[in-house]
């Protein structure tokens, strides 16, 4: 039985191709997650602005992203510019663009939630001990907001990573797509092919996402004191 697995992974460039697929998955996830964090914080801060002209557009953006399936967004950004403006965006760029649009929207809502759930008395207590507003943000508000954000951010990160297989619909050769191709070719002769390949892919996703969850647990424990 193990022979079937070995022959499968050792055949041709199968193993190397899976690793290349894994790299694409990691690349797109990492870039999208990082961009989402940065943009999400900015948009989240806009959402708590007192100025309605600043506050309202992000709300529409968030609702828009929430109601539209990721796949539709991928198709929209991949095919629409190409057909209508003769603008052929690289599939990986589209993938990062769409995942960042989604991630930034969710991140913004997390930031908004973390900041608005801060009791108003925290800021007032900071004022009462003579701190400036900048010092209050630095020593009181931001450290607490970060602690509140961590669980949601970790959850969002793992959700983004495990949603990346969608990008094979716009022909990005990521991990799951590569696996499917290998199974299609080998499956005729090797009836265990789908078991080994998808089992291996399952294992790869697990070893990417599980450390992230462990890191979250570690931080929660450290900060729960």
């Amino acid at each position: 039985m193990l022979d079937s697995a070995l022959s499968l992974f050792l055949q041709g460039r199968n193993f190397a191709r899976l690793m290349e697929g894994l790299w694409v998955t990691l690349e797109i996830s990492a870039v999208s997650v990082l961009l989402s964090m940065v943009l999400g914080i900015l948009v989240g801060l806009m959402m708590i602005s007192r100025n309605p002209w600043v506050r309202t557009p992000p709300r529409f953006y968030l609702e828009f992203i929430r109601v539209i399936p990721i796949l539709v967004l991928l198709y929209l950004f991949y095919y629409f510019p190409a057909r209508n403006w003769d603008l052929n965006l690289d599939a990986k760029v589209v993938a990062v663009l769409v995942f960042t649009l989604w991630g930034a929207a969710e991140m913004a809502d997390l930031v908004r939630g973390a900041l608005t759930s801060m009791p108003v008395h925290q800021r007032e207590s900071g004022r009462a001990v003579g701190l400036t507003e900048v010092q209050i943000n630095r020593y009181i508000i931001i450290p607490q907001a970060v602690r509140r954000l961590i669980p949601g951010v970790i959850n969002l990160t793992t959700r983004m990573i495990k949603t990346t297989p969608f990008i094979f619909f716009i022909n990005v050769p990521e991990l799951t797509k590569v696996g499917q191709q290998i199974v299609e070719v080998a499956g005729m002769r090797n009836y265990l092919a789908s078991f080994w390949v998808y089992g291996f892919i399952f294992f790869l996703y697990f070893i990417i996402c599980y450390p992230i969850s462990l890191f979250s647990l570690y931080l929660e424990k450290k900060w729960s004191n």
Binding site: P119, H121, Q122, E124, S125, G126, A128, Y139, I140, P143, Q144, R147, W223
Partner: peptide, 9 residues
């Protein structure tokens, strides 16, 4: 204040 607002972190 009434609601002893220590900084929890």
């Amino acid at each position: 204040f009434q609601s002893y607002d220590l900084f929890p972190h």
